[in-house]
């Protein structure tokens, strides 16, 4: 909260998450924290949103209908304009091979949904934004 006044607020965060309830919970939390939040319910919409306007950070689920999280990571990495966008993976997957794969595809960090509280997620978002933009 004390960072509201800094440059982090109003930053554009894209949440790609197919579960409506989780999506709402986390977007409301980020909203309350002062971020500008966009949401996408699948990979395709997510890619469209990214193409329309470049977000400051992406919170990405991995298992998605259609284009999945891994593919989004791959596409971003292969696009010179987008490869610098920090991506935080927020997934139900959590095996070391999934984590390794996501990391090797350029994910900034990997969070297993059930192991993090909304507060901790926000903390992580701020941490990354600070690292990248401040």
């Amino acid at each position: 909260m004390d960072e509201k006044g800094t440059g982090l607020s109003k930053m554009d965060i894209l949440i790609v998450e197919d579960d409506k309830f989780l999506r709402d919970l986390i977007s409301q939390k980020l909203n309350r924290e002062g971020f500008k939040v966009r949401t996408a319910i699948d990979g395709e919409i997510g890619m469209k949103e990214i193409g329309e306007r470049r977000p400051a950070l992406i919170l990405l689920d991995l298992i998605l209908p259609g284009i999945d999280g891994f593919e989004i990571l791959e596409r971003l990495r292969n696009d010179a304009n987008l490869s610098s966008i920090p991506v935080l993976v927020l997934s139900n997957l959590g095996q070391s091979e999934d984590i390794d794969r996501a990391r090797s595809l350029g994910a900034e960090d990997f969070m297993i949904k059930a192991n993090f509280t909304p507060g901790e997620i926000v903390e992580k978002v701020k941490q990354v934004l600070n690292k990248k933009y401040v």
Binding site: D19, I112, A114
Partner: peptide
């Protein structure tokens, strides 16, 4: 994990 995460987040909020 999806519903467990939903519960966790809801209760935490």
């Amino acid at each position: 994990r999806t519903p467990l995460a939903a519960l966790k987040w809801t209760i935490k909020v």
